[in-house]
Amino acid sequence: MTAQDSFHIFTKKIGKYPYKEIDITEGLLGKDTGGMEYPGLIMIDASGFLQKKHPLDRYNELTEDVSHEVGHQWFYGTVGSDEYMEPWLDEGLTNLLENGVYDLTYTKSKSYCAKLMHSKFYTRKNVKRANKILKENANQFINKNQKANYINYPVNNPPKGVDTEDMAYKLGMDFPAVLKVAMGENKFFDALHDYYQTYYLKQATTQDFLNIISKYDN
């Protein structure tokens, strides 16, 4: 359900999926590895469900992992990039699809997940409220002229005091998430669609991404 919801949302927001199918398989990928992506193939870690009485939050983790790996079919699987030299470019944009698009859209899969977790908090109203709060936070960040965090570093040389994973995933997502608010959603997704179409089945760099963004909002 999560894969289907994510696929339809990302297709609508970003562009057409280039391959004939997506195959998803489960496996035991090890600690702190939720999944692994390849063009047309997704592997999802199932180790969290080995015990009968697994924590209920495993269901939520599963939707996050599946949505994230499906998102990689767009950024990495279709628009290629150098995962070592510019890890933010696929992980950050994919994290945005997972947290800033799928999570902020009311879906049947998330609703079912909430049911499995016995949670009553997942409602259309609360999803709308979450969108509003994140927009307010982004505007606060913009208006306060926060100190810059550079994200286009290679894996072996992150900024001092910054964890490699945070640089690629968290800060890598924060940049386009704030950009979405600064530009406005329509302009941002028009630019993202343009970036996707321009580098469809090609290799892109951070500068290529910035060049496309600048066409829509300088």
Rank of each mutant, 00 (worst) to 15 (best):
M183V: 03
G172D: 03
K215R: 15
Q146A: 09
P176K: 06
Y200H: 07
R124M: 13
T205R: 00
G172Y: 02
D163A: 08
I212R: 06
N211C: 09
K215F: 01
F188G: 02
P154M: 05
Y200I: 01
N131K: 15
Q203D: 06
L179A: 09
A138H: 09
Y169D: 05
I151T: 05
Y195L: 11
N211M: 11
T164I: 10
K115P: 04
Q203L: 07
F188A: 07
D194E: 13
K170M: 09
I151C: 01
F175W: 15
K144P: 00
K202E: 10
L171T: 02
V127T: 08
K170L: 12
E185D: 12
Q207N: 04
L210N: 05
D190E: 15
Y199C: 04
N126L: 10
L134C: 03
N149V: 11
F209R: 02
Q146G: 00
F175G: 05
E185T: 13
F209V: 01
D174Y: 13
A168Q: 03
F188R: 06
K132R: 08
F188H: 08
M117A: 09
Q207W: 01
Y150N: 00
Y122L: 10
K144F: 06
F175A: 14
D163L: 11
Y150W: 11
K170W: 11
P154S: 04
V181I: 15
V181M: 11
I212Q: 03
S119N: 14
T198H: 08
A148Q: 02
E185Q: 13
Q146C: 03
Y195G: 01
L116A: 12
N131Q: 14
F175V: 12
A130V: 12
F209D: 00
K202N: 04
K215V: 03
D190S: 12
F121R: 14
V181L: 09
K135R: 15
K215Y: 02
N145G: 12
K120E: 13
Y169I: 03
T164Q: 12
K128G: 08
L171D: 04
L192V: 06
Y200K: 00
V178W: 04
I142F: 09
L171P: 06
H193D: 09
S119C: 13
T206Q: 05
V155L: 08
A168S: 11
K180C: 06
Y195F: 15
N137T: 08
Y169M: 02
N149L: 08
A204V: 05
K180V: 03
K160T: 05
I213H: 02
S119V: 04
K132W: 07
M173Y: 13
A204H: 07
A177Q: 14
T198R: 14
M183Q: 08
I142E: 13
A130Y: 08
Q197C: 13
Y200E: 00
I212W: 05
E185P: 03
V155T: 13
T123Q: 13
L171Y: 14
D190R: 12
P158A: 02
F188T: 03
V162C: 01
F189V: 06
I212Y: 04
D208K: 04
N149S: 03
N156D: 14
E136S: 09
L134Q: 10
E185G: 10
A114G: 07
E165H: 11
K180Q: 10
Q140E: 15
N126T: 09
K128N: 14
N137Q: 15
N145S: 08
I151E: 01
D163G: 10
H118Q: 11
L201E: 02
L116V: 04
V178D: 11
